[in-house]
């Protein structure tokens, strides 16, 4: 996965970048399966590798597929990135160990979710639709709003375009 990301950062051909990001999404999905998040992995494989690759290709078809050569070497962003990384790693050392059953995340509300109050075996579905139903309503509204925004941005306005040419 690291190789895929590094190649992604280096390549200047946007078509290759899109294909690489699809491969990266599949790798991420396998990692998520290994972390027991089967629902998330399924979504990531379908969305990241399927739909968003198609969308990126569609957008590439509308734009140029080669990136311009940058005017200067990216030393400033690189140094900022490395500094941020060092800070984040330092902070991560204070977080609970990997797979520690005593970590706060396993002590808070999760045990109650796992008691299966609503008699739905897949806890992810139960939490998604029932315990955090209001949350999910908000998410669906965000998806709807994004769709409406894209309709507003990309809908063809023929008569307006003719007078817009200046």
């Amino acid at each position: 996965m690291a190789f895929a990301v590094l190649a992604l950062a280096r390549t200047r051909n946007l078509f290759a970048a899109v294909v690489l990001s699809g491969a990266y999404s599949f790798l991420m999905a396998t990692v998520l399966v290994a972390l027991d998040a089967v629902d998330v992995a399924m979504t990531e494989a379908a969305v990241g590798a399927g739909v968003s690759t198609v969308l990126l290709l569609g957008a590439l078809h509308l734009c140029k597929s080669d990136e311009a050569k940058p005017a200067h070497r990216p030393w400033l962003p690189l140094s900022v990135s490395v500094a941020t990384a060092a800070l984040l790693v330092y902070g991560a050392m204070g977080l609970p160990d990997f797979a520690d059953p005593q970590a706060p995340i396993h002590q808070h509300v999760a045990p109650r979710y796992l008691q299966n109050e609503v008699d739905v075996p897949n806890v992810v579905t139960a939490v998604l639709a029932s315990f955090r139903g209001f949350d999910t309503l908000g998410e669906v509204t965000v998806v709807f709003t994004a769709g409406a925004g894209i309709i507003a941005l990309l809908r063809r306005r023929k008569h307006k375009r003719a007078g817009d040419g200046q």
Binding site: V51, V54, L55, G58, A59, H61, L62, V118, D119, V120, T125, A126, A129, S130, G133, T136, V140, V143, F144, A146, G147, I150, I151, L154, R155
Partner: peptide
């Protein structure tokens, strides 16, 4: 609860499918 979850999931699926298709149609 079962009934509520069922209908909510149907609503989610309809919206997500509609948005994805609409986005694709727009770009294509």
């Amino acid at each position: 609860q079962h009934r509520g979850i069922f209908w909510v999931e149907v609503g989610v699926a309809i919206t997500v499918c509609g948005v994805m298709l609409k986005i694709f149609y727009m770009f294509a």
